[in-house]
């Protein structure tokens, strides 16, 4: 009887955590800085350190663009960097997704009126998830990635 109860309890815990166990899909991130102040970049870097533990979701930094699944864009897209962003996006194999991290990548941030900036990453590549913040906390970045993965699981 006790054993049965224990099994029930374990099953409930497993059910509750099922949202966080992404077994089939372990995305590899590629990170690209299109003219940022580096605030978002160090938060993306911090999101990959042991304190926030992204590997429980299977999230890792990909070694090359040909292995990447998710493109993480930071920075207000400057005109010179926009061409490279486009080339980088086309080099990624399907299926591919784009996450815009930070206020600058979402809509230009404080730089949206400058002559040298195309305000926002969605003017160059199609964006799936926007993560606002200046800069967003590492927990917010991981939350955005998990939301993207849950959306993919449902499809």
């Amino acid at each position: 009887m006790e054993k049965q109860e224990q099994v029930e309890k374990n099953r409930k815990v497993v059910e509750k955590n099922r949202d966080y166990r992404i077994i089939r899909y372990t995305p590899w991130l590629v990170h690209f800085n299109t003219g940022a102040c580096n605030g978002c970049d160090i938060e993306v870097l911090a999101a990959l350190t042991p304190l926030y533990d992204p590997e429980r979701f299977g999230v890792k930094l990909a070694p090359s663009i040909r292995h990447g699944d998710i493109l993480v864009v930071t920075g207000a897209v400057t005109k010179k960097a926009a061409e490279r962003l486009k080339i980088l996006y086309e080099q990624m194999p399907e299926p591919k997704f784009v996450i815009a991290v930070g206020a600058c990548a979402c809509s230009g941030g404080v730089f949206h009126k400058s002559y040298s900036v195309l305000a926002g990453a969605d003017k160059v590549v199609p964006v799936d998830i926007y993560i606002p913040g200046c800069p967003p906390r590492p927990e917010a970045i991981l939350d955005g990635i998990v939301k993207l993965l849950k959306k993919l699981e449902e499809e």
Binding site: C37, N38, G39, T78, Y115, S116, P135
Partner: peptide, 30 residues
């Protein structure tokens, strides 16, 4: 690749708004 035109932007905003623009020149030493 990173030219964002901050100095020209700083001339078009008031002195106090520029404190926030200038803080975003570099995130590590803002």
């Amino acid at each position: 690749y990173n030219h964002r035109g901050i100095e020209k932007l700083a001339e078009r905003n008031s002195f106090y708004r520029d404190i926030f623009i200038v803080g975003r020149v570099c995130g590590i030493c803002n």
